[in-house]
Simulated assay, not measured.
Amino acid sequence: MKRLVVLVAACFVLSACNTVRGFGQDMQKAGEKIEDAAKKK
């Protein structure tokens, strides 16, 4: 689980979104990745 949190944090840092809309899209993508990871376990 800690790996997943680190991965999500890295995605936010690397994406460098500049707008609220971009941040919302990044959050949505991160949520989808978390859901996919949860389904695999």
Rank of each mutant, 00 (worst) to 15 (best):
I34Y: 06
Q25F: 04
L14Y: 08
K41I: 10
V8D: 05
G31Y: 14
F23P: 00
R21D: 01
V5Q: 09
C11V: 09
L7G: 02
K33T: 11
E32Y: 02
A30T: 00
V5T: 10
A30D: 04
F23E: 01
M27Y: 01
I34V: 15
D26F: 02
L4T: 14
A9P: 10
C17M: 06
R21T: 02
S15I: 03
S15V: 08
D36N: 04
E35Q: 14
V5E: 15
L4N: 04
K2F: 11
L7C: 03
G22H: 13
E35M: 08
K39N: 15
K39D: 12
K33Y: 13
T19K: 03
M1D: 09
A38I: 14
E32I: 09
K2M: 12
K2I: 12
F12D: 08
L7R: 15
T19N: 02
T19F: 01
L4K: 04
K33Q: 08
D26R: 01
N18S: 07
K39W: 10
G24M: 04
A16N: 09
A10M: 13
E32A: 12
S15M: 07
I34R: 08
V20T: 06
K2Q: 05
K39L: 15
V5R: 08
A16M: 11
A10F: 07
A30I: 01
L7H: 10
I34T: 06
C11R: 10
E35P: 00
K29N: 00
A38L: 14
E32Q: 14
L4G: 04
A38T: 13
K2E: 11
L14A: 14
K39H: 15
V13I: 14
A38G: 02
A37N: 12
V6I: 15
D26Y: 02
A38D: 14
K41A: 06
R21F: 03
G22N: 02
K39P: 06
C17T: 02
V6P: 01
A37C: 02
C11F: 09
A37H: 12
C17I: 05
L4R: 13
A30Q: 02
G31N: 14
K33A: 15
Q28I: 05
D26T: 12
M1H: 13
E32F: 03
A37M: 07
G31M: 07
A38C: 10
A9H: 13
V8A: 08
G24I: 06
Q28T: 02
C17L: 01
L7M: 10
T19E: 06
L7Q: 05
M1L: 12
T19D: 07
K33S: 11
R21V: 09
D36W: 14
K2S: 05
L7F: 08
M27Q: 04
F12I: 11
C17K: 00
V13L: 11
R3S: 05
K41F: 03
L4V: 09
F12N: 03
C11D: 05
K2D: 12
G31P: 01
L7P: 00
V8K: 06
K39Q: 11
V8W: 07
E32P: 00
A30R: 01
K2H: 07
A10G: 04
T19G: 02
I34H: 11
A38R: 13
E35N: 08
L7Y: 08
E32L: 11
E35I: 15
K33I: 15
D36R: 08
Q28P: 00
G31T: 13
S15A: 12
G22D: 08
